[in-house]
Write a protein that binds this DNA or RNA. Structure first.
Lengths: 207, 207
DNA sequence: ACTTGGATGTACACACCGTAGACTTTCGGC
DNA sequence: GCCGAAAGTCTACGGTGTGTACATCCAAGT
């Protein structure tokens, strides 16, 4: 069922094409995903792809969903790591931010593709756990722990997402991509700490 | 000299192609810039473009530079507006943030293209005034006014740029693009205020 | 066991894109 | 007025997304 057939019926074309797409986009991002090349790698005619995807864009979206899922896994791992060294809801939120950024830096191409899937991510479409949902869960925990005013949760989400996404974009494929990794990591840690502080420390400061 | 000639020599092909590129990218961003279509609009053979641009990418970069210049003008206008209602260096910094975001929302396509030019923007390449430089100038003013610790200026730049760029990306062409404009504007104002406060208010809070 | 229908791939074709080499027209300086 | 360089044209090649028509395979039903 999973192995490559020697003739005619492939057996798992859709999945194979997504894998090919992941390989292509890993280095040079979403625009490097080309349908014909994907079919070529899999060993099938170009037109065969259209049995599984309406058009190239549908392939890209499928690849994007997989990339997004991997991103979510990176975040989850980061959260576990941080929770171990210093627990609490704040650590979970920091994990989202740092995991988000780490994925963008480690896999800039996939981060670029994943952004496509984020477009439909806010709605409950995706069954997979998404970074957006991970952010919301972390903020919800903070609300439960009375570290965050429920009325300010939505604003907090926007603030955190914006800061982290902007930093990730600028440093992974943007103008700041030239910076040495250690310097970027230092910036990231401070940035995330500031964001978490601004969001969850608001009650303490201004009441 | 600037008007379109009736035959053979165009007179200002380079500029005309950039204009065509701006028109094409206005709605659908950088990937909508197609070299052949540009030459077609200008009324010239495809190959003619190569007298002025090494390849398509060079065209895109040229368009990006123009888009970036327009962005800078939007920011400048915003700064003048804000400075009138409530002066001070803080108003200048707020102007950068709000102008940046406003441009992204008003001209999402050009914002997308402009990002290409930002890549080479940090270096002193561009003669034109860039948003990055406007940000740095505003922060420098704050340092002069002793509202910002010089040692923290670099961090402040990263924090502001990340927050504003992320928000602009998410709301102009990203997952948050569906939000009604008034809501986005409200978020933007608060976000920028928070950023400015976090950056220039740090001394007051933590000393 | 044999047919049969729907899913899956194939063959071929088309328009469009970026780009290259060789040729032609025009412009500016002597 | 000539002539070299600059600016555009013509033709062509490989690559891409996508459409129409056909071939093949698998599984179910009698």
């Amino acid at each position: 069922m999973a192995a490559a057939r020697s003739s005619y019926h492939h057996g798992g074309l859709r999945e194979a094409l997504v894998q090919a797409g992941l390989a292509m986009s890993r280095d040079r991002g979403a625009e490097a995903i080309v349908l014909r090349e994907a079919t070529r790698r899999v060993g099938v005619t170009a037109r065969a792809a259209y049995r599984h995807f309406a058009d190239r864009d549908a392939l890209v979206r499928a690849v994007a969903e997989e990339a997004l899922a991997r991103m979510a896994r990176t975040i989850e791992a980061k959260q576990k790591e941080k929770q171990a060294e210093a627990g609490g809801g704040l650590a979970m939120l920091r994990g989202v931010g740092e995991g988000y950024i780490q994925f963008a830096l480690d896999e800039p191409g996939w981060f670029d593709v994943a952004f496509f899937a984020m477009a439909d991510m806010v709605n409950p479409t995706a069954a997979t756990r998404s970074p957006y949902q991970q952010l919301h869960d972390a903020l919800a925990d903070l609300v439960s722990a009375e570290l965050l005013d429920p009325a300010k949760a939505a604003d907090a989400a926007v603030t955190c997402w914006s800061g982290v996404h902007g930093f990730a974009t600028l440093t992974s494929r943007g103008p700041l991509r030239g910076l040495p990794r250690e310097r970027v990591d230092a910036h990231a840690e401070r940035l995330v700490a500031d964001l978490v502080d601004a969001v969850a420390g608001a009650d303490r400061r201004s009441g």
